[in-house]
Write a protein that binds this DNA or RNA. Structure first.
Lengths: 201, 201
DNA sequence: GTCTATACCGAGATAGAC
DNA sequence: GTCTATCTCGGTATAGAC
């Protein structure tokens, strides 16, 4: 669920417009590079309207990041455990991630700003870690544990390798502009990843 | 080689002081969050001295990132190909990376700011990609190709998995503050990585 | 709550003495 | 080349009318 979808479920119209505008500007220009004037223009409200909803720039930023993180990933908390045959499930998991996330500018921008502002806003980084990374890794490690035929010794570490490879691929290709220099086909990564984990088939 | 070490080999004293100060401030506060006044204070020179060496803030930033990237990683260009028995060499490669990089604030800050400023300075991201990522991946893929007994189908993709797992681990632990919430022992990652790649021993 | 107008400060960049 | 002093603009945040 994107922020827009999440907001349209609520009723506070002006506050939603502010958060929408704030997302555009913060994600484009970073925290320090964002001015409240631009947020006001982007959101289509006056600057004072922002300050009547949020105490200051910092509060606005924190509220925005929290809302996006939770809106997009609270489903992870409620998701069932993973099921299905390993080769097929792992392949689908990797492909969906690379396709969906690699083209999702909102997700990529969130990831980028979490890293960029991890010193100024360590709580935001920790929230992201607990809501997305830790939970995702745990779900996959549970799956590995329930499939001993894969011969995986350390399911948590292997789950990190799985997601870490995917995330770093997307970061390199889409954020560090690797794609524009020498695109590495994502299918090759998926095949090699499945091959490594599912070797003894 | 750190920036300090690299600078001490040259002779231009004031310019070195400026770059040293700029590194401290840019790495701490990001590009937009950095003021030229603070750089001047940190470097121990006046602001006008900075402007006599660098045309503007952007030029200073680009010069700094280029210098660090090239100073630290030009050795990669000249390095021999990797040699040694797979299990031992891969383990050593992973352990050295995790130990050296994980505790190297200058490297971590560089990685962070490359990602953070990848939209504003795509050329810097591309330089990093070509100087560090592409070259590192190529060296390891060469090694894989020279060891067919490992049974690796796609050496480039597997090299990405190897380094991608290590980099994402360091990013999550050290930058996203994962270490402070639930430290995942790096030895577990190394063992699982070697285990996956070197299964058919 | 929402707007226009404004206070006040710190930003990047420059002038001019030495 | 290097410094101190300064210009000008855009930043966050607030005052006060409606």
């Amino acid at each position: 669920m994107t922020l827009t979808e999440s907001l349209s479920l609520t009723s506070n119209h002006k506050q939603d417009k502010i958060l929408q505008g704030a997302m555009q500007v913060f994600f484009r220009d970073g925290y320090a590079g964002t001015s409240m004037d631009r947020v006001a223009i982007e959101a289509g409200v006056s600057k004072q309207t922002i300050y009547s909803h949020f105490h200051d720039k910092e509060s606005l930023f924190k509220a925005l990041i929290e809302q996006i993180t939770i809106a997009r990933f609270h489903t992870l908390f409620e998701s069932e455990e993973l099921r299905g045959e390993p080769e097929q499930l792992l392949r689908q998991l990797a492909e969906v991630y690379l396709l969906k996330v690699g083209e999702d500018r909102e997700y990529l921008s969130l990831l980028k700003i979490i890293i960029a502002e991890s010193s100024r806003f360590p709580e935001m980084a920790k929230l992201y870690y607990q809501t997305v990374i830790q939970r995702g890794r745990y779900l996959l490690s549970q799956y590995f544990d329930s499939h001993p035929e894969l011969g995986i010794k350390d399911s948590e570490a292997t789950a990190h390798i799985f997601f870490g490879s995917l995330v770093s691929f997307v970061v390199v290709q889409e954020i560090i502009h690797g794609k524009e220099i020498m695109p590495l086909p994502s299918q090759n990564l998926v095949d090699s990843l499945i091959h490594l984990i599912h070797r003894n088939k």
